[in-house]
């Protein structure tokens, strides 16, 4: 059995008195120990919903309306709040775009790290302190000892995010879910932090779900990839394969639209229109109004994921190449 198995996950929000809209419309994923998965999609595609739903953290009025999240054989969605706390922030750590979601502004870095560590296991103050300083050094924070006494506002955005990573690693997690961990940071700081996450995951055999809208970042860091569109996974498979030979027209369009894939001064390939809001999904394939391969069937029927792609007319497939 895989370490993490997500099956047919749906998240719904009430719309008016009687109806609901779905932010997640049936997502599956499998993650083995130490595997790194990238989740890519445009704003509103449901990436954060997926992360929150896996941790059973969907806030009211939203709810997981269907599906299961099995972690080592146990459905996290059935656990009591008390039991899931033993997993969340422990065996599964989270890193969010805004480090202040994790950090408490009125506590020093040291206090917060010691609390996390001591909630996780019984050790002496001196021992905990030593491990925290080691943790800060591991994420390349200069003068780690004195930073223990610092408050979050005394650190730059890049340093704060490194502290969050240090905290995420304190509990020796098996899985890290990182939701746009570097989107708010400069490119050079992003490169440092992603290089660090990659190295730590590799060295400690930690699995990673990396949520981002940047295909370059997933290409650098992950081995598996999932492309989301309007609450569904439209394509999934090995990262390299998808980037080299995308099969979903949306994935292909995204890659072609990148400036690095266009000649200097030429017009860029552009996908017309924009992703529909979840309250106004078109019939059939949600991508059909923007798709250059769409046929009548695409307007009427919803394509299901066949292991790799959810599309009636995929590209780069065996038949396509013949």
């Amino acid at each position: 059995m895989a370490m993490l198995e997500v099956r047919d996950l749906h998240v719904a929000f009430p719309k008016g008195k009687k109806t609901e809209v779905e932010a997640l419309r049936g997502v599956d994923l499998t993650l083995e120990k130490g595997e790194r998965l990238g989740v890519v999609g445009e704003s509103g595609a449901g990436k954060s919903m997926l992360a929150f739903a896996i941790l059973n953290l969907i806030a009211e009025p939203g709810r997981v309306s269907r599906g299961s999240v099995t972690f080592h054989g146990e459905n996290l969605l059935d656990l009591s709040e008390r039991d899931i706390r033993g997993i969340r922030g422990n065996r599964i750590s989270m890193i969010f775009q805004d480090p202040m979601v994790t950090l408490n502004p009125v506590l020093t870095i040291g206090t917060q790290m010691m609390e996390t560590l001591r909630a996780h296991r019984r050790i002496s103050d001196a021992e905990a302190r030593k491990l925290c300083i080691e943790g800060l050094k591991q994420v390349a924070i200069p003068s780690a000892e004195s930073r223990m006494e610092a408050y979050p506002h005394e650190l730059s955005g890049g340093l704060r995010q490194r502290v969050v990573i240090a905290i995420a690693l304190l509990t020796d997690p098996e899985l890290i879910i990182a939701d746009e961990p570097t989107t708010a940071l400069d490119v050079t700081i992003q490169a440092e932090i992603m290089a660090l996450i990659l190295k730590l995951c590799r060295e400690n055999d930690v699995a990673l779900i990396l949520i981002t809208h940047d295909l370059g970042v997933v290409a650098e860091v992950t081995e598996k990839l999932m492309i989301m569109y309007a609450g569904k996974c439209v394509e999934t498979g090995p990262t390299r394969q998808i980037i080299d030979a995308p099969t979903h027209p949306y994935t292909s369009g995204l890659l072609k639209a990148l400036p690095q894939n266009a000649g200097r001064g030429t017009r860029l390939y552009q996908i017309p229109g924009s992703m529909p809001p979840i309250t106004a999904l078109p019939t059939g394939c949600a991508y059909h109004p923007r798709c250059e391969r769409a046929t009548e069937r695409c307007k009427a029927e919803i394509p299901q994921l066949d292991g790799r792609v959810a599309c009636f007319h995929p590209l780069n497939t065996a038949e396509e190449v013949q």
């Binding site: 200069p142 992603m194 370059g216 970042v217 990148l258």
Partner: peptide, 24 residues
Amino acid sequence: RLLLDAIPKLEGGSFDKPRTPGEL
């Protein structure tokens, strides 16, 4: 050069090098 090196690339390889942390 530091900026160019930091760009994530579809071919990969940018984040494999060790990086010296830098603060503005």
